[in-house]
Amino acid sequence: MPYEPPTLPANLPTEIINTLNESSLELLRDVATYAEAFAEEKEREVRLEESADQEEIKGRPDDFPDDIPVKVTIKQISDNRYDYWQWREGDKIKSEYKCPVDPDE
């Protein structure tokens, strides 16, 4: 099978194409690694937002406005598990300690 160079995405801006064409192999690999990790983070944020929209939270804090979707996530710190409220403010995902996870649940 003969070699074929990679196909440029049609929606890639010219400035980015020019910058990539002028970049070293090492920089291109760094950009590829970062772009993949960044895309995964954006996908994660979308999943969090979708799950927050679908989940009804019992015991919602009184100081959270009704228009902010809030969910409970579990974080493991050392050997202990804790519930945290989690919500979005603009482009940021915020969290606040709620309580330790009940081991009987």
Results as ranks from 00 to 15, higher is better:
T14E: 11
D30F: 07
E45R: 09
K92T: 12
R88K: 15
E26H: 06
I74M: 08
D67E: 09
P69V: 03
L48Y: 04
C99P: 00
D62W: 02
P103S: 09
F64H: 11
E105W: 02
I77N: 10
L20M: 11
Q86P: 02
R60E: 05
P61F: 02
I77F: 03
A37W: 00
A35T: 12
I68A: 12
S95A: 13
Y3H: 12
S95T: 08
D66E: 14
N11T: 08
A32N: 06
K71V: 04
P65N: 13
T7S: 12
E26M: 10
L8W: 03
A32S: 13
M1W: 03
S24G: 13
K98P: 01
D102W: 01
R88F: 06
E56V: 10
V101F: 01
D66C: 06
D79K: 10
L20D: 02
K42G: 10
L25Y: 08
R88D: 04
G59T: 08
L48N: 05
K71H: 09
K58N: 13
K98W: 01
V46C: 06
R29D: 10
V70L: 05
L8F: 03
Q76M: 08
F64L: 13
R29E: 12
T33C: 07
T33R: 11
V101E: 01
E4L: 13
F38P: 02
P103G: 07
D67H: 10
N11D: 12
D91H: 09
E40P: 00
W85E: 05
P103N: 04
I93D: 01
P100K: 12
I16W: 02
D91M: 08
R60G: 10
E96F: 05
D91Q: 11
L12G: 07
L48C: 06
E56F: 05
V72K: 09
A35R: 03
V46A: 15
Y34K: 06
N80C: 09
S24Q: 06
L12T: 14
E49L: 09
K71M: 14
W87C: 04
E96W: 07
T7L: 07
V70E: 03
R44H: 04
P5Q: 05
N80Y: 11
I16K: 04
K42P: 01
V72L: 13
T33A: 14
D79N: 15
I77W: 00
D102F: 03
N21M: 08
F64I: 15
R44D: 02
A52S: 15
Q86H: 04
P69I: 02
E105P: 01
K42I: 11
Y97R: 12
W87F: 13
I17Q: 14
R44G: 04
D83N: 15
E89A: 13
S95N: 14
E26S: 13
I77R: 12
L28V: 13
L27C: 07
Q76T: 14
P5N: 03
E22L: 14
I16V: 15
L27K: 13
I68M: 11
D53G: 15
W87K: 04
E50G: 04
P6Q: 05
G90D: 03
N18T: 14
E105T: 11
K92R: 15
Y84Q: 07
P61T: 03
G90K: 03
V101N: 01
K75S: 07
